[in-house]
């Protein structure tokens, strides 16, 4: 299949399966982009999410642009991004036009009660998978746990955490290498 068409369809499918924001897209991406298409590794997805945290814009869109660009250059990035937003535009336009009270329909509210419970577990599974490639030694374990606590308990801004972790990684690796030389 044409790579551009493949990018568009894969990301459209990913967008259509994403319930509950950019983070809920991670398990779908691991399935569609890492396992099925081999367009990227779990490690690279973690990188894209980290960059998506401290660059402006919707994280799902940022990740789609990255993966598309890696596969097929600038045009690939644009097409993957259009793919990921396509289902949203279609579905929301229909709802906005015909179903003004969509969110207040009891069946919809109950369905989303169930979906939210499920998404918790899917995100947990995705995190456990990411952990394998990102938490590789004691310092990275400390960074991971500290980030979780700073974010949940103290509401520290994700952008700030990402920048601090990058600097920390740089310092740790550089000093580690110098220590190795001695």
């Amino acid at each position: 299949m044409n790579i551009y068409l493949d990018l568009f369809l894969t990301f459209a499918r990913t967008g259509a399966c994403t319930f509950g924001g950019g983070y809920a897209m991670l398990p779908i991406l691991q399935r569609e982009v890492v396992n099925k298409r081999h367009w990227s590794t779990d490690e690279e997805l973690a990188d894209y999410y980290a960059i998506g945290q401290c660059t402006p814009g919707v994280i799902a869109v940022n990740t789609a642009t990255f993966v598309g660009m890696k596969q097929a250059g600038t045009l690939g990035g644009v097409i993957a991004t259009l793919g990921v937003v396509f289902p949203s535009v279609l579905i929301i336009t229909v709802i906005a036009a015909f179903l003004r009270n969509f969110a207040h329909i009891p069946a919809v509210a109950h369905a989303f009660g169930g979906i939210r419970a499920c998404v918790c577990v899917l995100i947990l599974n995705a995190v456990l998978k990411l952990r394998k490639s990102s938490v590789i030694d004691p310092p990275t374990a400390v960074i991971c746990v500290a980030t979780f606590l700073l974010s949940t308990l103290f509401k520290v801004s994700p952008a700030l955490i990402v920048v601090a972790a990058g600097v920390l990684g740089f310092l740790l690796r550089r000093n580690g290498k110098e220590a190795g030389k001695k």
């Binding site: 990188d47 980290a50 995100i123 995190v127 938490v135 980030t147 979780f148 601090a164 972790a165 740790l172």
Partner: peptide
């Protein structure tokens, strides 16, 4: 080296 620090933070943020 920067990504070595970014990746676990990214995982923590997603968690």
């Amino acid at each position: 080296a920067v990504f070595y620090g970014l990746r676990p933070a990214s995982t923590g943020l997603i968690a």
